[in-house]
Amino acid sequence: MTMLNALTLFHSLPLAELEVGKQFYWHFGNLELHGQVFLVSWFVIAVLLIASILATRNIQMVPAGTQNVMEYALEFIRDLAKNQIGEKEYRPWVPFIGTLFLFIFVSNWSGALVPWKLIHLPEGELAAPTSDINTTIALALLTSLAYFYAGFSKKGLGYFGNYVQPVSFMLPFKIIEDFTKPLSLSFRLFGNILADELVVGVLVLLVPLFIPLPVMALGLFTSAIQALIFATLAASYIGEAMEDHHGEGHEEH
């Protein structure tokens, strides 16, 4: 509790402050929404849409400018999906995995790079949408649905065969896995991004100048890595669900 007292002491300083777990509530009927998450996510969505429109406004055979950048991004995503899902079936999954990657990546970096603190909300503060547990759980659950859908659409009810592969006593573990996958996905992302923002916040609180810079750079790195990890794992889960166990298709992920 002394730590808490120290924190409240810092609160009284005008330089910086740290808010954790405070939400800017919006009410729709009897629904409660986290306004700050939606505001920043709309910003992220707008960034992505504008970049897409700029890139595709005037498509040329020899790419230049935005088109070049976005083509690089798309090829990166395609490679990622191809590596995890396989040459034959990756194409329909590129939009989902790619959007996961882009949304998380832009969210994380917007949280780290955009000085949201300059915009004051009545309560809570603007931050990366991925530092809110709701967002990460939503993304993780969508990933779960995606890989179930992938498995069932590829194999029908034969998908349940996956649960007893390669040996039948794997069944309980495989069932547990279905719960741990979204859990680990969502908490990994949430924890990393929130922790990064908190570390930067605390360091800024303690030493407002220069010292937080290396940590911020590290934060940018972790943010990018987390987006990559989330997209790669989602792709690998989807690939795993569609994997053929009859052939030699055993790939270690």
Binding site: G21, Q23, H34, V37, F38, I53, A55, G98, N134, A138
Partner: peptide, 26 residues
């Protein structure tokens, strides 16, 4: 921190819309 409410489903819907839009636009 662990305040789960209607943000979750709406975010999921929003994300799916983003997937659809980016699919068309990007």
């Amino acid at each position: 921190l662990f305040d789960i409410d209607a943000t979750l489903p709406l975010m999921a819907v929003q994300f799916l819309i983003l997937v659809a839009l980016l699919n068309i636009l990007f």
